[in-house]
Design a protein around this nucleic acid. Structure first.
Lengths: 322, 322
DNA sequence: TTGTACGCGTTATCAC
DNA sequence: GTGATAACGCGTACAA
């Protein structure tokens, strides 16, 4: 016999009344509430969440889909977990490590009602394949998916990139190289377009031959720096896909006795804690706020209640690498 | 009508047989299996996990309890999530931010059968309070809890610390300072004792007045360095609670024009990726292996099957700060 | 305010 | 091999 049944019997009340007390329904006499509450405490009762979930059809769990975790993803996750908790939701992490099958598991979990909703940080499956899952629950993406079915909380990358470009040019740097992330990503495309149009508009050289792609980690940054150093002429500045890449470039530059920023200015992206410590100039990315917005988007569906969203913006943080 | 019922009706078989096919029971005729499988595919069927969990009493979910997340915790979490997935388990993250009530939520979730087991990374509630939850499911801790009810996968901190001390002494550094973590933690105690006995055994000075506590982040490290620099005489070397602290100290030392390692040697702890990039000498901590062991401990209970555990050891990684 | 009856979707224990 | 039937623990119309 379950504790629920015990409470029923001991209190003399019915299932429904016990359930009402558990869920703080106002339509219960003080006497009943008191009696049942006492017995609940005495029995150290706590509802079985599986039973609740089965009955209500809601698990109060939300999944975050990512291929890997770094400080950026982490900042997002932490804020998301916090916000979700304020609304009574818990968060599951799905790390796919780039495996399509594993990633799909998260979406299947939406179908099988293990989670009520999903947030996509990174995604290796084709957007079209994911459309089929939209009917099973709300899905929101961090980056743009190039897919209108799945809304995103992505920001205008071009705005951030222009901030960096304006800063560099105002400091007198004109030969500007780029260490991009994933070549095909919409983020990279936006940034590249921002760069090219900005340089053209200002009559500055577009260093296409200096484009480097897939520069994510500090190790990637090191290699990128080595390639730059081995080239015929060093650019005056380099814009990085993120701060890790910037730190790698900065570190390797030091080893090669290239003075920063005199010989090479470096601008990171995202503004992680270490770039503050190491003094890397960067573009502040309001990650936490995006996480909050991501949950609010889900809540709009789950709670059937729209929350107003504020417009977020990037911000230049000038430190000692420019 | 649920899809399960649809399958029943369309196939003409009973609940039980359908369930057998779903769970790959061998006691089903090929004909029945074929027919039911076809209909399942046709209906795009997937079992409702809440119903399964309610019926079996297992959620196949495990919670990780932590107060915050950094690269170390992350390394552990990632490996744990991976290992757990290999065994068909999913992982929930409970970040308490040091709030006892929030942390307790994780343990209540064990009680309410939302998770089958729990891993404690850090814990702010008193160990005695947690003992009460052991009856609801397996709990394993990363660090030692000072509580025999809750097993841990903690390593011998003293062994790792001695590695660093031997290395420093062999390099000729004898005036060695310490930047510890949480003063009351068992880890810190072990390390401090290792330091004191090692120094005494080797006839070297024990710099008690140079003990610094609560040095966790790179910011903490910066401040620790400033305090050291403002003191009467600089130690020759400093042992850090982790690599973040080491990086902070290293960075601030550079700003103060203190040459590393000539004027000050620095040894980190844990061996995160950045200490490789920045060239910080450190003690490699086999975090991922500890995560695997943590899951195996839980699996010993959940799967009723013991897995052998190998003895793990710290390792010195010499780089350019010593 | 309270109780009845049914539903949630699946597993498990028996029989046959 | 297959099929009733009873759990699993709780929510919720609807009626009283």
């Amino acid at each position: 016999m379950s504790k629920f049944d015990e409470i029923m019997k001991k209190s003399g009340y019915s299932k429904a009344t016990v359930s009402r007390v558990i869920n703080h329904s106002p339509h219960v006499s003080d006497e009943a509430r008191q009696k049942i509450t006492d017995i609940m405490k005495q029995l150290n009762y706590i509802p079985n969440r599986n039973a609740v979930s089965l009955s209500t059809g809601q698990t109060k769990q939300i999944g975050i889909v990512t291929s890997a975790t770094n400080e950026i993803i982490l900042t997002f996750m932490n804020q998301f977990i916090d916000t979700a908790m304020d609304f009574g939701f818990q968060t599951l992490i799905y790390t796919s490590r780039g495996d399509k099958e594993i990633e799909l598991q998260a979406f299947e979990d939406l179908r099988s009602k293990r989670v009520d909703g999903l947030v996509i940080m990174t995604c290796v499956n084709h957007p079209d394949k994911l459309k089929a899952y939209c009917e099973y629950g709300p899905i929101v993406s961090w980056q743009r998916m190039g897919n209108d079915e799945i809304p995103s909380v992505a920001m205008d990358q071009a705005q951030g990139y222009r901030l960096a470009l304006e800063h560099l040019v105002s400091k007198g740097y004109t030969r500007i190289a780029n260490a991009f992330g994933r070549a095909e990503s919409l983020n990279t495309q936006s940034r590249r377009e921002a760069y090219e149009s900005f340089m053209v508009d200002n009559g500055l050289p577009v260093l296409r031959e200096a484009y480097q792609y897939s520069i994510f980690s500090s190790s990637d940054g090191e290699e990128a720096m080595r390639r730059m150093a081995s080239g015929s002429d060093l650019p005056q500045a380099v814009l990085c896909s993120n701060d890790y890449a910037a730190i790698g470039i900065w570190s390797e530059a030091r080893k090669q006795n290239i003075r920063v920023p005199e010989q090479l200015a470096i601008v990171g992206f995202d503004d992680i804690e270490l770039s503050r410590v190491l003094g890397i100039t960067t573009i502040h990315n309001p990650i936490a706020e995006q996480a909050t917005q991501a949950f609010h988007r889900l809540w709009a569906v789950l709670g059937k209640q729209e929350l107003q969203a504020q417009q977020l913006e990037f911000q230049l943080i000038e430190r000692s690498t420019t």
